[in-house]
Design a binder for these strands. Structure first.
Lengths: 208, 208
DNA sequence: ATAAAATATGAGCGATTATTCGCTTTCGAT
DNA sequence: ATCGAAAGCGAATAATCGCTCATATTTTAT
């Protein structure tokens, strides 16, 4: 039997050289997305910017979509690093304090890499394998639900799952729109005002 | 001097035949977007589904992007038809009633053509001329601001512009996510519950 | 009836793109 | 020093797509 060609992309990169290649490719993709936009992010251009060949790109990523997913996942990881930490610290605090801190951290999360965040949210067509690329991380629902459960007695909401949906959706939308679409709100002062309003909105809802 | 070729797309379609062509093209684009997705919406395919030639397409639309914009605008028109009417009726009502009705109408608006709405929101890359294709219609801010102004004495918010941003963003995000991403909430009962929660959220915020 | 204007046609051009594969270079273990 | 495996290379391919234009048909006005 003839030897299989098997040019299928291998998953793991075992040597440190190839790990560097993978990093360079993800980084190059992110840079192009931010600086030139999604439709300029062709595989050949990505390879060029990464300083490797297209062939190498396809050794580690089975498709262009896979690269975009990798970029999105790396970004999500960075954001959740921030959010998870704060949520742990806030678990013991009463609703007023906790909600305010969570909104503040949501703002901080949207400022990790706003330009990339915006491109991922607005320029990536959710088609094919990109379909489940969600802006709203499901983990947020779970984490917030846990907080609500452990503070049930402070609350005047009956359906905790529904309340979690309402709160997470609201906080995400407010911070997303403020940071990415309303330049006026970027000043420290205006941002404080927005956090105040958001906290009032959500706290009032939770405490009746 | 030689005669100019001037194949630039003409704006107006004066005869009824050409108006039908324009309609067929917009309708075909919408159908393809919903049934096959954005990346299947090539100009050749659109023309084919519309039952006209590609050449005719370019008589009335200077680019593929222009067609998508036309579809989005038609959709927005239909939605705003619904919203404008309700907002007028609600102008005289107190905050509790008004907010509840506005959330209900937002749900209704998202149900006009949910599949198209979702494709427009998630599959169209905001690039080039599509960049200003906004999900959040600026008209909503203006209309809602007017309502707040004429009910200023009922409210405990100081910055009306900020309050309008908070409310419109919140209502849009809640209804959008509920209708387009949470199948469980589509039942009449669950939808009522969501409207109740949303109304409580926003009313509580506005009235202190 | 006739001519001009409006409308419609669709093969094909040029450009771009994702992906492949035969080959070379480098690495790591012996 | 040797050799197999891992990593890297990039010209070439095949397909797609937006768009044009020379030509044909239909409508309107006279």
């Amino acid at each position: 039997m003839v030897r299989r060609s098997l040019t299928k992309p291998r998953k793991a990169a075992s040597q440190q050289r190839s790990r560097a290649t993978v990093d360079a490719l993800i980084e190059a993709t992110a840079r192009i997305l931010v600086r030139e936009g999604f439709d300029k992010a062709s595989t050949n251009r990505i390879a060029e910017v990464a300083g490797v060949s297209v062939g190498s790109l396809y050794q580690y990523f089975p498709s262009k979509e896979a690269l975009v997913v990798a970029v999105a996942e790396r970004h999500q990881q960075e954001i959740m690093q921030t959010v998870r930490g704060e949520l742990a610290e806030v678990l013991a605090e009463p609703v007023e304090k906790a909600v305010r801190k969570l909104i503040a951290v949501a703002v901080k999360a949207h400022r990790v890499d706003p330009k990339l965040h915006r491109v991922l949210a607005e320029q990536i067509p959710r088609v094919g394998k990109l379909e489940k690329l969600e802006t709203l991380n499901p983990e947020n629902f779970i984490l917030f639900s846990r907080y609500l459960e452990s503070h049930r007695d402070e609350l005047r909401v009956h359906d905790l799952e529904l309340a979690s949906f309402v709160c997470v959706t609201t906080i995400e939308a407010l911070t997303h729109n403020a940071v990415l679409h309303h330049a006026k709100m970027l000043s420290g002062e205006a941002m404080e005002a927005l956090i105040d309003e958001g906290a009032r909105l959500v706290t009032g809802y939770l405490k009746g």
